[in-house]
Design a protein around this nucleic acid. Sequence first.
DNA 1: TAGATTTCGGACTAACTGGTCCATAAAAAT
DNA 2: ATTTTTATGGACCAGTTAGTCCGAAATCTA
Lengths: 189, 189
Amino acid sequence: MARLREFDYEQVLDGALGLFWRDGYEATSLDGMLGEVGLSKSSFYGAFGSKHDMLLAALDRYIETVLQANIEDLRRGSPRAAIVRHFDKILGFQPVSKTCFLQVCAVELAAHDQLVRMRVRRGVELLEEAFRDAIARGQAAGEFAADGDARAFATFLVANGYGLQMLGRANLAAHSRKKTLSIILKALE
Amino acid sequence: MARLREFDYEQVLDGALGLFWRDGYEATSLDGMLGEVGLSKSSFYGAFGSKHDMLLAALDRYIETVLQANIEDLRRGSPRAAIVRHFDKILGFQPVSKTCFLQVCAVELAAHDQLVRMRVRRGVELLEEAFRDAIARGQAAGEFAADGDARAFATFLVANGYGLQMLGRANLAAHSRKKTLSIILKALE
DNA sequence: TAGATTTCGGACTAACTGGTCCATAAAAAT
DNA sequence: ATTTTTATGGACCAGTTAGTCCGAAATCTA
């Protein structure tokens, strides 16, 4: 075989994800990113192909790490408590909310980039399915209206999560955002 | 006095708004935009100052035209019908949803740009106030729960609107999104 | 008509963009 | 030890970026 790569692929990918997440895709310069993670251009192009390819890889990685962790957290404890936990996380982002990376990609790129759009949709659908499962379990346990459409409830919860993240970015008064949680929960009853 | 300007300031501003709206701020090149609207660089810098200044002007213009029109539409007819109209608009965006310009700016720029953030917040607050008025009128007319917090209901509606726009960008199944409207309306009763 | 003032077209700039290339280094296989 | 294969550093590239500058044109006032 041949020379071994000296850098940690996943570590570099996580670093790139962090920058894309914080600054967006266009505002993240390749040179700047390579400087921060300490990688040469030839190594980068050898391992990742292009800036755009790396974004797709970062998006996949986000889904299989950060998003999956959120999804698994939705499975823990009582469904209602898990949903409250999920929203408390969103409502606690400080001070100008860091939004889900899926939202960053959806708003900046999805309209013009089919490969990004497909991944964002898949991520959103995974989250929606997790909510649907939680709702179904909650319905069986009598926590939520048994005659409600679990899928529709799930979409409703996903939409509220992203909407509240947007309001966080806009810096809308936190006390105002927090009061919506009880409305959301009541809608499930 | 002196030579008159040959271009229409607001027409150029609307053109720029359209591009920022469609492609985002970073992805919109100044040269490209000036080519499209047919303006020379010196005229541009004389009238608008910088790309960033123009974005702020475009954001202000969005609020006082597009957003105000939406707000005024919320005042027409029965509050409940106006709210349904508002969400039908969002749910009808095709095919990969064009989202509110406030959301584009919030997600791409608000975290790092205070001037943008202030404007986005102001726009969101205007929308929220319009919803609050509609809710209050609806409560007086017996359309909505009279004991509900009108401000919280309004924030809830704004969040749902932006959340559904995000799901539209992600291309989440339209039938799934549409089913949330009845949940939203029921939450107000 | 002369002067003052502003706009216009477009040449120009310096910095930066993502991406290519190549000589060298390092590891494994023979 | 030589060959094969891949990784690395960094020089290099053409195109683009936002922004500056200046001579010429156009309009108003006197």
